[in-house]
Design a protein around this nucleic acid. Structure first.
Lengths: 127, 127
DNA sequence: GCACTACTTAGACAAGCTTCGAAACACGAG
DNA sequence: CTCGTGTTTCGAAGCTTGTCTAAGTAGTGC
């Protein structure tokens, strides 16, 4: 059905990443490559109104407040979330554009090569 | 494992990730959260036939062979790639199903929160 | 002003990661 | 069998990261 010619596939599988671009993306990926930060991002994104107070987040973990604050800072430095102080509390929300960048990297990978135990069938796509 | 019948919103922003799931995904993300491994994955995926020999990969970096081998092992342990020895050379290829899991996590994140509540009040003061 | 709560910053420590050189393993050629 | 090439494993050095305690900043209320 589909030609294994990676014509419409994820950027990552279409052409080799440039060194600089890989470094830039790695920073973004490092930010989410942690169970706590992954859950934080998820909690913020799925919270009512699209934003969450730090106190809500802290209660969900068995970690100290400074540790949560540190993880939030990592996410914010990477650009994945942003925050604002509103009175006593600080609220965080997701920056969709940056998160989408990660999705675009891996998302449109074509259906798996059914050849289990072997690489993509290298049958010549008749051109 | 679940079929990627994701409707519209990214799982990560739809409901809070469970602790176990976050840990599992973090392992996958840690594997790709490195410039070298990101480029390796990209080079393997975009190589002719969908597979690449280690010698091809080693030449593209200013790193020693053991280092490249180490990174390939990390990717393979995570399940992102698989390999096979064919005579003298070892060939690697991407496992699309696992890569797709990452894409499904972030990909379909909708555009910024609509007016139905949310941090919309704040003006776009991008810092 | 003073006390209290919410959150962040600073400093320190253990654990893990990236990289290397040296050595071991796997295979084909002679 | 022995040699040479391709690839992985082993052991170690240097840097980064996750977590904590202690202290600092920002706001509310008496």
């Amino acid at each position: 059905m589909s030609a294994p010619t990676t014509a419409c596939c994820a950027p990552i599988a279409r052409e080799p990443l440039a060194e600089a671009e890989a470094a830039e993306l790695a920073v973004l990926l490092k930010a989410v490559a942690d169970p706590v930060r992954l859950r934080l991002l998820s909690m913020i994104g799925s919270h009512a109104g699209g934003e969450a107070c730090v106190c809500d987040l802290t209660d969900a973990f068995e970690l100290t407040a400074p540790t949560i604050s540190h993880h939030l800072k990592v996410l914010r430095t990477a650009g994945l979330i942003d925050c604002e102080r509103r009175g006593t509390w600080v609220y965080y929300w997701i920056v969709p554009a940056v998160v989408n960048r990660l999705g675009a990297l891996f998302a449109p990978l074509a259906e798996p090569a059914p050849a289990s135990g072997g690489p993509v069938d290298i049958e010549l796509t008749t051109v």
